[in-house]
Design a protein around this nucleic acid. Sequence first.
DNA 1: GTCTATACGGCGATAGAC
DNA 2: GTCTATCGCCGTATAGAC
Lengths: 203, 203
Amino acid sequence: MPKKTLSTKEKLLAAATELFIQKGFDRVGVREIAAKAGINLSLMNYYFQSKERLLEHIFEKIIISKATHLKQILDSNISLEDKIKKYTTEYIDVLIDNPLIVSFFLAILHRNPEKIVAMASIRTLYNSEVFCKQLEDEMKAGRIRQVDPEQVFICIVSLVIFPFAIKDLIMDRNNFSSSEFNKFSQQRKEVVSQMVLNFIGLK
Amino acid sequence: MPKKTLSTKEKLLAAATELFIQKGFDRVGVREIAAKAGINLSLMNYYFQSKERLLEHIFEKIIISKATHLKQILDSNISLEDKIKKYTTEYIDVLIDNPLIVSFFLAILHRNPEKIVAMASIRTLYNSEVFCKQLEDEMKAGRIRQVDPEQVFICIVSLVIFPFAIKDLIMDRNNFSSSEFNKFSQQRKEVVSQMVLNFIGLK
DNA sequence: GTCTATACGGCGATAGAC
DNA sequence: GTCTATCGCCGTATAGAC
């Protein structure tokens, strides 16, 4: 039975999330968040201990909801080719729908690398053990080229994530509108999977 | 005839550059810079208008010196294969030697995306007209696969740059020391060029 | 437990004297 | 060009009302 009116905590989270998305972590102040949520400034420190913890809370919530699914693909029991295609495709979809994620991720990573490294949700997302083992098995069976699994994994996430980090640059260079950038991202699904599959010797 | 004693401005730049490299953009304060340079705080605002402008000044100086060389490779009159190999190799070398570049790039990108887009040095670095034209010529001549030149260029920079952005994550996952990460980056030279060359159908 | 009012210390930036 | 003094904002902490 959902409440009709948002609790103070919910209002706070909603306002902070929206502002962080709109302006980025550094460009929104705590007083601005409180004002938008229509609450007293101190309540931010009552419910969360600090602005940074508030951000982490929001970040983890978003990451966890998306990361779980992506991780399942990586750990699933499907062919390497299908896995790479599915992973890149759905990862790109996630980033198209949540432009906030990349900016958040890089901002926190830059400001406080130890924190990102320690975050459970990130460790989960970037744990590619099953995927690496699968690559090694395929190599032993001679079905793919000899490659460093870690390098391959880094290549995939680089190809998927980085274009979203430089979205503004890409849009400016090509005179893309937002929807044109999304189209460009859609086309990347094919580009990225092909590039990775070619490299390991599939297709 | 070089001066033996540094001018105030030079002391300021030297101190700021060093701190900036050591600690990253967000983690150095203006009072710390002034103290290290042995000058009064206000002189920072006298010579540069703000901390951000000071850091931009330093960033542009480093970027321009490196970007010019990378841009020359991209615009040079050598074979596509050699060009891709040389560009990725030397780009990775630049980032190994100047971790500051990626850190600053990401900091500004998050804080002020319009600024990155407006920076002349960045615009120069990311202008790939000659390279794109060369790709198109090779396609017309049937020597490489049909590909979107913009996609290829974005792939190259993603594969080269992003691993440096997530350096801490990579080091943590693999228990890399700093020198092991550099070795990993050295190996990426071959990985990245192979991956791109395979994709466009060379080699 | 929930909320208000207010204060603290640090930051980047600036006005104005010399 | 250089310095002192100070401003306004920020994130945070706390005393105390309901």
